[in-house]
């Protein structure tokens, strides 16, 4: 038996994560990189673990330069086994670490589903509060990138359905920078869904402070006639729809959900009390979805404010199709506007 092994380039000379220049606009992926770098620098218990996150910096380069800066015992490549990544992260958290796991793509999370839902989510409850699980699971998710099967899905509802998990998704570089740090600071497990189609979109990052707490939704465009709610990459679609609606004389309010579990309903209820109409949009299939949950809850809490039924705009209840068909599968601004028109017609 040969005992030779491939020499690892864990001391390769690559620059560390770059400082963010003040007032510069940076892509969402770089904002995440900067947030992770800050968390690693602030707390030695923070670890990054996952497939290809070391010298390569992750397939989306979100962890680029971090192994070179913090070393291969803080930022390390794991064997290619998602259940193993999450299962060992649980043990590391018991040891006092704060692991941040990268799952390479949305569709690859299911081998880890058991460890996430059966173990990670229940561990604090099982210990009656005597053991905490500060584990973050980063998941690049969603479509619009023309990729092959299992690389464009939106599985967040499975995790929002699971008690014990917190589920969030940033839509802007500023939120990405702050929310990843807040997720790492949480003593509960956080599913951190990153809208991969937005990785390369630039925006400003306010380095002075986070504008709002982690689990808060936020009005990102004010309007008076219809309320639109969504998260992640869908927020961009909703803002496009609002712009088009404005050109046609309709005033639309847009709310970025940011937190999928728990959901911060106050801005949504307040908005619906003003507009009387709500459209909830997502890239995930609509059946038993986050959108369904919001529709039911708003109906319960703001029934007398509603002028129309809450409408959902979602992907179809079919598997994510071959990429050449994704523009027909995913809701776009026109499909959102169609729902806006239907809501106004009541």
């Amino acid at each position: 038996m040969s005992d030779e092994s491939t020499e690892l380039l864990d001391s390769v000379e690559t620059p560390g994560g770059a400082e963010i220049p003040v007032n510069a606009e940076i892509p969402l992926s770089k904002a995440l990189n900067a947030g992770l770098r800050k968390a690693l620098g602030d707390d030695k218990r923070v670890l990054l673990m996952g497939e290809d996150i070391g010298p390569l910096g992750g397939v989306f380069r979100v962890t680029e330069g971090l192994q070179a800066e913090f070393g291969s015992s803080r930022v390390f490549d794991t064997p290619l086994a998602e259940s193993g990544i999450v299962g060992t992260a649980i043990g590391l958290a018991m040891r006092g670490y704060r692991p941040v796991c990268e799952i390479q793509f949305d569709g690859f999370i299911f081998p880890a589903f058991d460890q996430i839902t059966t173990q990670l989510a229940k561990m604090t409850n099982r210990h009656e509060g005597q053991v905490q699980m500060p584990v973050v699971i980063r998941v690049p998710y969603g479509g619009h990138i023309g990729a092959v099967e299992h690389h464009q899905e939106s599985p967040e509802a499975y995790f929002a359905h699971t008690p014990g998990l917190r589920v969030v998704s940033p839509s802007t570089p500023n939120d990405a920078y702050w929310m990843i740090q807040e997720a790492i600071a949480s003593n509960d497990p956080v599913m951190f869904f990153e809208p991969k189609s937005r990785y390369w979109n630039k925006g400003p990052v306010d380095l002075s402070s986070s504008a709002v707490p982690l689990h808060s939704s936020r009005v990102v465009r004010t309007g008076t006639e219809v309320t639109l709610v969504g998260h992640g990459a869908m927020v961009t679609v909703l803002l496009q729809a609002a712009e088009l609606a404005a050109a046609e004389g309709t005033s639309v309010e847009v709310i970025d959900l940011r937190s999928i579990s728990p959901i911060d309903y106050s801005p949504i209820i307040e908005s619906v009390q003003k507009t009387g109409r709500l459209v909830v949009a997502s890239e995930a299939p609509g059946f038993v979805s986050v959108s369904s949950e919001i529709a039911a809850t708003v109906t319960e809490r703001a029934f007398y404010s509603l002028e129309a039924p809450v409408l959902r705009v979602a992907a179809f209840d079919a598997p994510f199709p071959p990429a050449k068909l994704e523009t027909s599968y995913l809701p776009d601004a026109d499909r959102v506007l169609d729902a806006v028109d239907r809501a106004l017609a009541y």
Binding site: L47, G84, V86, G87, G91, M94, Q115, T118, R126
Partner: peptide
């Protein structure tokens, strides 16, 4: 002595992660 684990084999990974942490502690 950690809690009993009723789903077979799950605890093997928790143990491996804990042991990895011992190594990382150095």
């Amino acid at each position: 002595f950690h809690l009993y684990t009723l789903v077979l084999g799950s605890q093997a990974l928790h143990a491996a992660g804990y042991a990895m942490g011992i190594t990382f502690d150095g």
